[in-house]
Amino acid sequence: MPESAPNSFSSIPILDYSLLSTPEGHAKFVEQLRHALIHVGFLYLANPPVSREDMDALIEYTPRLFDLPQEEKEKIRMANSPHFFGYSKLGAELTRGQTDQREQFDFGTLYDNQWKPGDPEYLKLWGPPQWPPEELIPGFKETYLRYLAQVEQLSYEFISLMAEAFELSEDALSPFFNGSTKPESGVMQHRSKIVKYPARKEGESDQGVGPHFDGGFLTFLLQASDHPGLQVQNLAGEWIDAPPIPGTFVVNLGKALETVTQGLARATSHRVLSPAPGSTPRYSIPFFQSIAQDVLIGDLVLDFKPGILKLKDSRGQVGATDSVNYTEYGQYPSGYVNLIGRVKSHPDVAEKHYPGMFKQFFPQGLPAQGSAY
Score class of each variant (00 low, 15 high):
Asn7Pro: 00
Phe9Glu: 01
Ser10Trp: 14
Ser18Asp: 13
Ser18Phe: 02
Thr22His: 00
Glu24Cys: 03
His35Thr: 10
Ala36Met: 04
His39Val: 03
Val40Trp: 03
Leu43Cys: 06
Leu43Ile: 05
Ala46Lys: 02
Pro49Asp: 11
Pro49Met: 11
Arg64Phe: 04
Phe66Val: 05
Glu74Leu: 15
His83Tyr: 11
Phe85Asp: 07
Leu90Thr: 01
Gly97His: 09
Thr99Glu: 12
Thr109Trp: 00
Gln114Cys: 15
Tyr122Ile: 09
Lys124Cys: 09
Gly127Trp: 01
Pro128Glu: 13
Pro129His: 13
Pro138Glu: 10
Gly139Ala: 03
Tyr144Trp: 11
Leu154Glu: 09
Ser155Met: 06
Ala163Gln: 08
Ser169Ile: 01
Ser169Phe: 08
Ser174Arg: 02
Pro175Ser: 00
Pro175His: 02
Tyr197Pro: 01
Glu202Lys: 14
Thr219His: 02
Leu221Asn: 06
Ala224Gly: 12
His227Lys: 03
Glu238Ser: 04
Asp241Tyr: 05
Pro243Ile: 06
Gly247Cys: 08
Phe249Lys: 07
Val250Lys: 02
Asn252Gly: 09
Ala256Asp: 09
Gln262Ala: 15
Gly263Lys: 05
Ala265Pro: 11
Arg266Gly: 06
Thr280Asn: 05
Ser284Pro: 04
Val295His: 02
Asp299Arg: 15
Val301Tyr: 02
Phe304Gly: 01
Leu309Trp: 11
Leu309Pro: 08
Gln317Asp: 07
Ser323Gln: 00
Val324Trp: 13
Asn325Tyr: 10
Gly330Trp: 05
Val337Ile: 04
Asn338Lys: 12
Gly341Tyr: 02
Arg342Asn: 12
Glu351Asn: 12
Lys359Trp: 05
Pro363Phe: 05
Pro363Cys: 13
Leu366Trp: 00
Pro367Thr: 08
Pro367Cys: 02
Tyr373Val: 03
Tyr373Gly: 03
